[in-house]
């Protein structure tokens, strides 16, 4: 059963990760300037990002509303910039 973004937002980080693991589709990831990595998922027609700390290897933040600039970066990486407007 699909979850809306509002419902998804009600859960804590650990739970969001659990939901992403079985409901989300991993798209790609990129390494940020601080060395941490940002992973992009799609779930129920929405983009979701998960920030992983390189130091601990754990996900430290999950955002269901993705910054447009970040989305451009992912699009460029995927060579899909033309589709994102």
């Amino acid at each position: 059963m699909e979850l809306t973004l509002a419902e998804f937002a009600c859960f804590n980080l650990k739970s969001k990760q659990q939901i992403l693991n079985y409901k989300g589709n991993y798209v790609c990831s990129m390494v940020l300037s601080d060395g941490n990595s940002l992973m992009l998922y799609t779930m129920n027609g929405n983009f979701i990002t998960a920030l992983k700390s390189t130091k601990t290897g754990e996900v430290v933040q999950i955002d269901s509303v993705v910054n447009k600039d970040i989305l451009y970066l992912f699009a460029e990486k995927l060579d899909l910039a033309g589709f994102v407007n």
């Binding site: 059963m1 979850l3 419902e7 009600c10 859960f11 804590n12 650990k14 739970s15």
Partner: peptide
């Protein structure tokens, strides 16, 4: 307790959705 509470919350949500 928080882990359990998250599971309870998720169960309630699923029961409602179904």
């Amino acid at each position: 307790q928080e882990d359990l509470n998250e599971n309870i919350k998720f169960t309630s949500l699923m029961l409602h959705k179904y």
